[in-house]
């Protein structure tokens, strides 16, 4: 992370060691296991974190245009005695709740509700934290007809324009534009076992291998782990999880997330809005390697070192 070493708990060293070993070819089974942890049925979801790290959380509902989207939670709360806006995709744990939350797949109303809350936060000078956890935006005819593409792009545009500090945290699976729609931030953090990818392994399997059973191979090809995203410059820090994964101890997972958020917000609050916007633009502007006629392969923002612990 550009802003120094967060005060992590004692097992940070263990995580760093693991990341260090994986700098060569990653073992297939490790990678697949990590992806399974990212989507574990008992993994803490957005509200599990919000309810643990905030007090007086007031959830907002509705986009004032069409409806309310339960796949996205948005509201205001107190985090370490500071007002903070939180927005995130929300998955459900049992069948009823999964259906109600549409598996964390947001519709245009969700992004528009998020934008409404972010505009209020921006006006009040309140930092914004997004928690990303989705297999993608909802692929449905109604969502398309109400402008799914424009909802995502306008959400990104608004996040880029914000004057207040913005932190995005990938807490589970971050797949496709549906994830990135909440991902334009001054800092992007990823939980140790989270993934951030252009498409889910299952989606890629069907499209690229024309065979739905090739998800494991697709995952191996995309390597969308937190450690790799850190190396690519997509993530600014990797947040450790309790041993075995965040699902083993929601309380500890939330406590560690809170520590990283506190540290990151303090760093960002020390900067002016103009300084933050320059960094926000540059961190996305430089992502993506290409062959420059004079410079060979230019990995614009790649990092060789493992994340600081």
């Amino acid at each position: 992370m550009s802003g120094g070493k967060p005060d992590g708990p004692s097992f940070v060293r263990r995580v760093t060691g693991k990341l260090g070993r994986s700098s060569g070819v990653q073992v297939d089974e490790d990678l697949w296991a990590s992806i399974q942890i990212a989507r574990h049925a008992e993994r803490p979801y957005t509200l599990d974190y919000i309810n643990r790290i905030t007090s007086d959380f007031e959830e907002m509902h509705g986009d004032r245009l069409f409806g309310d989207d339960p796949a996205i939670v948005a509201g205001f709360g107190r985090f370490n005695d500071r007002p903070v806006a939180f927005v995130g995709q929300q998955k459900g744990r049992d069948t009823n709740e999964r259906t109600y939350r549409n598996f964390g797949m947001a519709s245009p109303e969700g992004y528009r509700k998020s934008m409404r809350v972010m505009e209020i936060a921006n006006r009040m000078g309140m930092p914004i934290v997004t928690l990303i956890d989705t297999p993608g935006a909802f692929p449905g005819a109604s969502a398309e007809e109400r402008g799914q593409g424009g909802a995502i792009s306008r959400s990104m545009q608004l996040m880029w324009r914000l004057n207040v500090p913005v932190v995005a945290v990938v807490i589970g699976e971050g797949s496709s534009g549906g994830a990135l729609g909440l991902g334009i931030a001054d800092r992007v953090l990823m939980l140790e076992n989270s993934t951030y990818s252009v498409i889910s392994p299952e989606g890629a399997s069907a499209i690229l291998w024309r065979d739905a059973s090739q998800a494991k191979r697709a995952a191996q090809a995309f390597k969308p782990t937190a450690a790799n995203c850190y190396r690519w410059g997509v993530a600014d820090a990797v947040i450790p999880e309790p041993p075995g994964g965040a699902h083993t101890d929601h309380g500890q997972a939330a406590e560690i997330l809170g520590q990283y958020l506190q540290r990151t917000l303090l760093e960002l609050e020390a900067q002016t809005p103009a300084e933050r916007r320059v960094v926000r633009r540059e961190r996305f502007r430089r992502l993506g390697p290409l062959r420059d006629p004079e410079g060979g392969v230019a990995m614009a923002s790649g990092r060789d070192a493992p994340p600081p612990g």
Partner: peptide, 16 residues
Amino acid sequence: MQEGTLALMQMAKTVI
């Protein structure tokens, strides 16, 4: 797809 997560990030780059 073949550029993975970094291709996704081009969405952010172009919007900004």
